[in-house]
């Protein structure tokens, strides 16, 4: 019983876990200084493009939390043209057929692009989620990050599969 008293519970919902990752990953990425200080109203802006696979959890997770010492604002976007200025763009699986167009639209803006679409990192996306058994794994295209003016810390690169 003594042991049971000190128990705590870990969440393991797959999509929720990925949502948590977004915040954690961002802490290991350095944006160009101008972007970090001048973006919309000092918020850390996360854009969710396409069908919300996080089941609304992005909103609830980051409602009272900060990323890089900034409060977080979540933007749900249904098309490329409506993507606002944001530091992190998560591209839903529903957009997998227009990944190339999305990345072309983003160009080299200092936006951390994240997706779980297959082949995302090889197609110049920056961070790709993939599953290995029940664990979430990361694939990072570091050159793509540099092209966007982003610097990913060695600590994050060390735990990911890195595409040069």
């Amino acid at each position: 019983m003594g042991i049971l008293l000190s128990m705590s519970v870990n969440a393991v919902d797959r999509e929720e876990h990925k949502a948590i990752y977004l915040g954690r990953l961002s802490n290991y990425v350095a944006w160009p200084t101008t972007t970090e200080s001048n973006n919309q109203n000092e918020f850390f802006n996360i854009c969710m493009l396409g069908v919300d696979t996080f089941k609304g959890f992005l909103q609830s997770t980051y409602a009272e939390k900060s990323i890089k010492h900034q409060p977080v604002k979540i933007h749900y976007v249904d098309s490329i043209e409506n993507i606002p200025e944001c530091q992190l763009l998560f591209i839903s699986l529903s957009e997998k057929k227009i990944i190339t167009e999305i990345l072309a639209y983003i160009g080299n803006k200092p936006v951390l692009t994240v997706s779980e679409v297959r082949g995302f990192a090889e197609n110049n996306g920056i961070i790709q989620f993939y599953m290995q058994a029940q664990k979430v794994r990361l694939k990072i295209n570091n050159q793509a990050a540099l092209n966007h003016g982003l610097k990913i810390s060695a600590k994050l690169l060390a735990i990911a599969k890195v595409i040069e």
Partner: peptide
Amino acid sequence: VEEFSEADDMSLEDLLEIETD
């Protein structure tokens, strides 16, 4: 406890080892 408060304190390595549903 608050489900995700721990995730903020976890190392990246530990985060990777979490088994999802």
